[in-house]
Structure formats: C-alpha cells, structure tokens
C-alpha cells in the first residue's frame, strides 16, 4: 500500500485523533495555568498551613510519573467515590501534573520581579491584592512566558499518555490503525510528524506572539 492510499484510507481517523489531542492540550493547559497560579501563590503565603498544602501538592505531582498519576486518577479515584469519565480523567491528570511544574515557574517569576516594584506599590499604599494583580503579576507573566512555551510542549507530549486509558486521541488512533494494518512506519511516523508540527509550528509561534503582545502592553517593546 502506498503512503497516499494509506492516508486516504485512514486520514479521517488521524485527523479526528489530532483534533482530540488539540482539545485535550487546550483544556489541560487551562487547568495547568489555573493550578500553577494558585499553587505558586499558595507556596509563598505567610500562613504555614497554606504553604504546606502547596508544597505537598507540588512534591507529589513532581515526584511521581504522569502515567502513575493518570492510572491512579482513572482506576483508584472511583474507589473514593469520584468517578471521572476517561476524557476528563485524561486532561485532569495532565493538567494537574504540569500545573505542579508550572507552580514553580510562577513562584520563580514572582520572586524575580525587582524589589523596587514591591516597595513602590507599598509606597503608593496599594492593598496586597491590588499590588499583586496590577503590578507584580503582569511583570512576572512576561518573565515566565518563555518557560511556559517549553512547558506547553511537555504538556502536549503528556497528552499522548491518555491513549493508554483509551481516550481516542492521535496516539490512540494510530495505535489502533497499527493493530489492524501493521504499517508501523506509516502510522507512528505520521503521528510523530503531526506532534512535531503542533509543537513547532503552532505552540512555539503562538507563545512568541503572546510574548510580543505582553511586551507591548508593558511598554517594553
């Protein structure tokens, strides 16, 4: 079978898998950002208990494998009475895992905002919340954007694991096609190229663009 015949026969399934992968990536990314911001800020809270919760969360999710977390959320959580549908379990696991890594980025970025900015907002009598939202976070965001670009690529790669709990993403589709056709080079090769295209020609340019927009907003361009 030529590669063209292969594509015309299985192209639909590969495209539908790709769309599922993209949707998973977007949902997991939104969840990861929310968790990263929350856990990152909690990690720096004055209250030791709040700080402790964030540290435990970050260490557990960074200290074990994504695959272990995914299986745990999918197979063990139902025993606690929390049953997640496989698609939900998939992006929740990926989002929670990458959120723990993101939390450290958030913390690092906030700490690297120059001290003068904190002092200036104190001198202007801003409330802590206002200082964070209006002064510190926008600058921290710009500092951590390049690292988030890398993290989002890790996240995209992480979504491939949800195929193992039978979510019909790109990885799952090519595995199925390979199971019936045994055209391993074509199936897995195509999927590798598609993941590369998403990472290199969608995520990376998008993050560059976002960085430029942020720079303009902060008057740094």
């Amino acid at each position: 079978m030529s590669y063209f015949e292969f594509l015309s026969q299985y192209g639909d399934r590969i495209i539908s898998g790709t769309l599922v992968t993209i949707v998973l990536t977007v949902l997991a990314a939104l969840l990861a950002m929310a968790i990263a911001l929350a856990a990152g800020l909690m990690r720096m809270a004055p209250n030791a208990l709040v700080r402790g919760v964030a540290v435990v969360y970050i260490e557990i999710f960074r200290g074990t494998s994504l695959l272990v977390q995914l299986y745990w959320i999918f197979f063990v959580l139902p025993l606690f009475g929390i049953s997640l549908e496989k698609f939900t379990a998939g992006f929740v696991a990926v989002g929670m895992n990458l959120g723990a890594y993101g939390a450290e980025l958030v913390r690092g970025a906030i700490l690297s905002v120059p001290k003068g900015q904190w002092e200036a907002s104190l001198a202007l009598n801003m409330s802590p919340a206002k200082r964070m939202v209006r002064v510190i976070l926008p600058q921290a965001l710009l500092i951590m954007l390049p690292s988030w670009g890398n993290l989002l690529i890790e996240l995209l790669k992480g979504t491939a694991l949800v195929a193992l709990i039978a979510v019909a993403d790109l990885m799952f589709q090519v595995k199925q096609i390979n199971g019936t056709t045994f055209l391993s080079a074509e199936t897995f090769g195509t999927a590798l190229v598609i993941y590369y295209i998403i990472a290199r020609f969608m995520i990376t340019p998008f993050m560059r663009w976002l960085e430029r927009v942020m720079q303009r907003k902060l008057g740094r361009a």
Partner: peptide, 23 residues
C-alpha cells in the same frame, strides 16, 4: 534534536519497537 524533544516519548517507544519488525 528538536524533533525528538517535541514529540512524545511513548510514541517514540512504540515507533522503535514496531518499525523494526516491519523491515
């Protein structure tokens, strides 16, 4: 290097394992 870094490891494992026997 860029290619390897931006594609999922689990897919690479499948690729290496299954493409060999085809040839």
């Amino acid at each position: 290097v860029e290619f390897i870094r931006s594609t999922p490891l689990v897919l690479q494992i499948f690729f290496v394992f299954y493409v060999g026997p085809q040839f």
